[in-house]
């Protein structure tokens, strides 16, 4: 597969969230505001691209029986790194995201890509695959967050768009996230005409 295709494929057709059903947890939890979703996207893209590159670099030396533990150690080192950087430079957002940055460790996208792609491919294409998947995840995250912020708070990136009396409290709570994501999945699958058996 060419590098361009490796990059584009997870953005639309093979999107990690709507198609591969990976990484749903954080997609729902950090989408109350667009700002949080942006930071989360950056953090996850960094982790998935770097971990793919490192795992692919080590792939010939990792015995397959302990590969999960090795991958977990690589990933959790990267996550600790990004967690500390956020704590140092963006303290407020890091408080709002609380445990969800730490939970990138168990985000299925990162583990899934490391195990399914990086273990078989060279460093460059693994890195590009990581970038593509991180951004594909991020694009859905930002769409969900835009809906929830505009309908829930009446703002977008903290600028007021809708008057305050239109705020819908349900969008801020958990059910709003589930339902919006369900509708987006419907939309994406109708476009790519994918039907699950």
């Amino acid at each position: 597969m060419s590098n361009k295709k490796t990059f584009i494929d997870p953005l639309i057709d093979n999107n990690p969230i709507t198609r591969q059903v990976l990484g749903i947890c954080s997609a729902l939890a950090v989408t109350v505001k667009v700002e949080q979703a942006l930071v989360m996207t950056l953090a996850l893209t960094f982790v998935v691209a770097m971990s793919n590159a490192i795992v692919s670099l080590l792939r010939k030396y990792i015995p397959s029986s302990i590969r999960i533990i090795v991958q977990l150690i690589v990933i959790s080192t990267l996550v600790t790194l990004i967690d500390k950087v956020l704590e140092a430079y963006m303290y407020d957002i890091s408080k709002e995201l609380s445990v969800f940055i730490a939970l990138i460790v168990t985000n299925c996208i990162v583990m899934g890509r490391a195990d399914a792609f990086a273990m078989q491919n060279d460093v460059k294409s693994s890195f590009i695959d990581g970038l593509g998947n991180g951004l594909g995840y991020g694009s859905i995250l930002i769409i969900v967050a835009s809906f929830r912020e505009i309908l829930g708070f009446g703002t977008f990136l903290n600028f007021r768009i809708l008057p305050e009396f239109l705020n819908n409290g349900l969008m801020i709570l958990a059910p709003g996230a589930f339902i919006i994501l369900g509708l987006i999945i419907w939309f994406q699958r109708s476009i790519t005409s994918f039907v699950e058996e």
């Binding site: 709507t18 059903v21 349900l170 709570l173 958990a174 059910p175 709003g176 996230a177 589930f178 339902i179 994501l181 369900g182 509708l183 999945i185 419907w186 939309f187 699958r189 109708s190 005409s193 994918f194 039907v195 699950e196 058996e197």
Partner: peptide, 23 residues
């Protein structure tokens, strides 16, 4: 169920309703 909603889509919406009940 409509084709595009089959599987994951309808499950998400159902989970939304379930979580509303838990609220």
């Amino acid at each position: 169920i409509p084709d595009g909603l089959k599987g994951l889509g309808i499950t998400m919406i159902l989970t939304g309703l379930l979580s509303m009940a838990y609220l």
